[in-house]
Simulated assay, not measured.
Amino acid sequence: MMPVPRLMMFVTGLFLVCLPIVSMAQGAQVAFGSSQQDRNLPVEVTADNLNVNQNDGTATFTGNVVIGQGEMRLTAPRVLVVYLAGQTGIESLEATGGVTLVSGPDAAEGERADYNITTGIIEMHGDVLLVQGDNAITGETLFVDTNAGTARVSGRVKTVLQPQARQ
């Protein structure tokens, strides 16, 4: 996978070159990842720092945070983990400061991501970019259903679709 700055430059260049085929809509439904995500798999977190608050059942990871669950990877500068009552498991993850989400061949970027482990729904907000192969979609919000392997982009959506090459 290309580093994030190169990815952004590539997609920006792609937009400039392909402006005539850009389509705009209020929302777009797309697939995300190569298969359904098993949310029962363990969640592995690595980071530079960890602060735990026993009083409110949270843990804050900061600095180069990488979270993995199955084939899905999420990276961010800061992630707040909210535990279930009794600390029997994870309820949700709140990633902020510029987030990258990768699942199989698909990648998404945004300013913030909230992952509800119980429902399997990830919401990304703030200048979201979704890249799937040669295709790119931008919008304000991305909703990923990890159970169904689907995603929906909303909020002034722009899409660049590459036509198939003729043989």
Rank of each mutant, 00 (worst) to 15 (best):
M1N: 07
M1D: 02
P3K: 12
P3H: 06
V4P: 00
P5Q: 08
P5D: 13
M8Q: 14
V11S: 09
T12S: 13
G13K: 10
G13I: 00
G13N: 14
G13M: 05
L14K: 14
L16K: 06
L19N: 01
P20D: 09
I21L: 09
V22K: 03
S23V: 13
A25V: 08
Q26C: 00
G27V: 00
A28I: 15
Q29Y: 09
V30P: 00
V30H: 04
A31V: 06
A31H: 10
G33H: 05
D38V: 04
R39L: 07
R39F: 03
N40Y: 10
P42C: 09
V43Y: 05
E44D: 11
A47L: 04
A47R: 10
D48F: 07
L50D: 04
N51S: 08
N53L: 08
Q54I: 09
D56G: 04
A59L: 07
T60G: 00
T62C: 06
G63W: 11
I67K: 05
I67Q: 06
G68P: 02
G70E: 11
E71H: 01
M72R: 10
R73D: 01
R73L: 06
L74C: 07
T75R: 09
A76Q: 03
A76Y: 04
P77K: 05
P77D: 13
R78I: 12
V79C: 07
L80D: 07
L80N: 13
V81L: 13
V81M: 15
V82G: 08
Y83K: 13
L84W: 02
G89S: 12
I90F: 10
L93G: 04
G98I: 05
G98W: 06
V99G: 09
L101H: 06
V102H: 07
V102G: 01
D106N: 10
E109A: 11
D114G: 01
D114I: 10
Y115S: 06
Y115H: 08
N116F: 04
I117K: 15
G120Q: 11
G126N: 09
G126P: 09
G126S: 12
D127T: 05
D127K: 13
V128A: 05
L129Q: 03
L130R: 01
L130K: 03
Q132E: 06
Q132S: 08
G133P: 08
D134V: 06
N135V: 06
T138D: 03
G139P: 03
L142R: 11
F143M: 05
D145I: 05
D145H: 02
G149R: 00
G149L: 05
R152H: 04
V157E: 08
K158I: 00
K158M: 12
T159E: 05
Q162H: 11
Q162G: 06
Q162A: 13
A165C: 00
A165D: 11
R166T: 14
Q167M: 05
